[in-house]
Nucleic acid binder design. Structure first.
Length: 507
RNA sequence: GGCCCCAUAGUCUAGCGGUUAGGACGUUGCCCUCUCACGGCAGUAACACGGGUUCGAAUCCCGUUGGGGCUGCCA
């Protein structure tokens, strides 16, 4: 069997968006499923709109998603001469022709056709120019493009689409004599794409639905150049919540933006692969699962609506599955320059460990431990009225401070294994350290817990009635990790300081 | 307008001639509980419509409606 070779061919006229990422993932998964190769080609023939910034974004985003290409990246802008030579060949074989019509003239033709209720196609003025006329115009340096001469007289173009598993039939009368080389000598998409795909021996072209109507044009070029045809698979579009094609209007659409907002690449990959593709009732797919199970026949024919809720669910799923040191690292990677980095110590670790089940993004996770990062807490007035504190509470806080004072210092010693974790590559060793860290935390928290419970019962208090005031005093928030965990993370001294400050604030 | 494609709950989907139409997200209720989550349990909600074909249709065919795409010297 022939090796499967696929490609992703974005144009650097925008950031890598969700739709492009899915197409890339499909192509990657398909090739890898068959042990084939996946290539990346930058289609930068639109010199007006292509930028290096977008190009870098696309490459980086793909890398972040783990969609790794084989071989070197191809740039169409480096291959203009190749396209030109093929255009020359088509000209010589009279499968293409020079067109000297001015843009103004074409615009006029167009409006006349539309006014008469006709299809706005090229009128064919230059389709059958005689040699002398062409020579004359060329010698005069008259601006021109090269058009492909579409065979008509009732002919039609047929190709099989692998997603629908059926033939798509388009009458050639519907297809214009499209431009293959622009006035400035740069080839157009439909021309360059065919030459590159053919020359790089791409076997399967998996791309968006928006290319179906281009396919007959491209097949004509394949045939006119005697290239071997690849197979085509057109994936339906991704729609926004309003049913319209997904665009910037719908909020975050670039991969990069999702990264910044604290999504994990695993979550995005998993979400994207399930958007339009299924494998029975399975929902969770790692990259290797994707490669293992991916196929074209399980791709849905209909358009899919992008749903952030489900992405968030997947993201929280993957956040929960990561170890907390790793999460700290990821949070620091995406933090704003103005934010201070999270420390890789055992206290931060314990908080992340506790909060990671309560958030859906890394950004939220960072925010959730904000009370720990802040030196000085702000207490919300509204929250105070809600608490409705009395003299009894002030008394309780006093007692609580006594309890804190009585805690042994050494339980708060920082037994951070961070040094050992820096720059080591042995996963099982890391796992050991991780487990040890976790059990240290658990042991300590247990000891705080039993001491605290004894303190409560001695005074005939219950957790239920006292938890909220402690929570607010120590964090300034109504929602926080469990009390014992806060005490552990903050440490004795900070807890006492915060209780003192809070007591002063309320009295 | 013309051409092409699509149609199972709010969303992603399973189904491929005979199912109590399955799963997941969301949502609702309950349990757990120091808050919020997590977790567990239970519930909610769908075959767009109309004709055929067939003993039998979500499934096959035709039409209607609705949606999407293309109709560039963008890709």
């Amino acid at each position: 069997m022939q090796e499967v070779r696929t490609r992703f061919a974005p144009s650097p006229t925008g950031f890598l968006h969700i739709g492009g990422a899915r197409t890339a993932l499909f192509n990657y998964a398909y090739a890898k499923h068959f042990g084939g190769q996946f290539f990346l080609r930058i289609e930068d023939t639109d010199v007006e709109r292509s930028t290096k910034e977008y190009e870098a974004d696309i490459i980086e985003s793909l890398k972040w998603l783990g969609i790794n290409h084989d071989g070197e990246i191809t740039y169409q802008s480096n291959r203009i001469d190749i396209y030109k030579s093929y255009a020359k060949r088509l000209l010589k074989e009279e499968k293409a022709y020079y067109c000297f019509c001015s843009k103004e003239q074409l615009e006029e033709d167009r409006s006349v056709l539309i006014a008469n209720g006709k299809k706005p196609m090229y009128v064919g003025r230059c389709r059958n120019l005689d040699h002398c006329e062409i020579e004359k115009n060329l010698n005069l340096d008259k601006p021109h493009v090269i058009r492909f001469k579409v065979e008509r007289n009732g002919k039609s173009s047929v190709f099989k689409d692998l997603i629908r598993n059926q033939y798509v039939n388009i009458n050639n009368d519907e297809i214009d004599d499209f431009v293959i080389v622009r006035e400035d000598g740069i080839p157009t998409y439909n021309f360059a794409v065919v030459i590159d795909d053919a020359l790089s021996e791409i076997t399967h072209i998996i791309r968006g639905d928006d290319h179906v109507s281009n396919t007959p044009k491209q097949i004509m070029i394949y045939e006119s150049l005697c290239f071997k045809l690849p197979q085509f698979a057109h994936v339906s579009m991704i729609l926004g919540s309003d049913g319209k094609r997904l665009s910037k209007r719908h909020g975050a659409t670039s991969v990069n933006q999702y990264k910044k907002e604290g999504f994990l690449p695993e979550a995005l990959d998993n979400y994207l692969i399930r958007l339009g593709w299924s494998h029975g009732n399975d929902e969770i797919f790692s990259i290797s699962d994707i490669i293992k199970f991916f196929d074209l026949k399980s791709i849905s024919k209909s358009a899919a609506t992008f749903n952030t809720e489900k992405l968030l669910w997947l993201n929280s799923h993957y956040i929960k599955s990561k170890d907390s040191y790793f999460l700290i690292r990821l949070i620091n990677e995406i933090k704003e320059d103005s934010e201070k980095p999270l420390e890789k110590d055992i206290r931060t670790f314990s908080l992340i460990e506790s909060m990671k089940t309560r958030v859906k993004t890394l950004a939220e996770l960072r925010k959730a431990v904000g009370f720990y990062l802040e030196e000085e807490l702000e207490y919300d007035r509204g929250l105070m009225t809600e608490l409705n504190l009395t003299g009894k509470d002030i008394h309780f806080l006093k007692e609580f401070k006594v309890f804190l004072n009585g805690l042994e210092e050494n339980i708060f010693e920082d037994r951070s294994p961070k040094k050992e974790l820096e720059g080591i590559g042995n996963p099982s060793y890391m796992q050991d350290i991780m487990n040890e860290t976790l059990s240290t935390i658990n042991r300590t928290i247990e000891s705080i817990k039993s001491g605290f419970n004894a303190f409560l019962s001695k005074n005939n208090w219950t957790m239920k009635e006292k938890a909220m005031i402690i929570r607010v005093a120590l964090t300034g928030e109504k929602v926080s990790p469990p009390i014992y965990e806060i005490i552990f993370a903050l440490g004795k001294e900070k807890c006492i300081k915060r209780i003192e400050k809070f007591s002063k604030f309320i009295s």
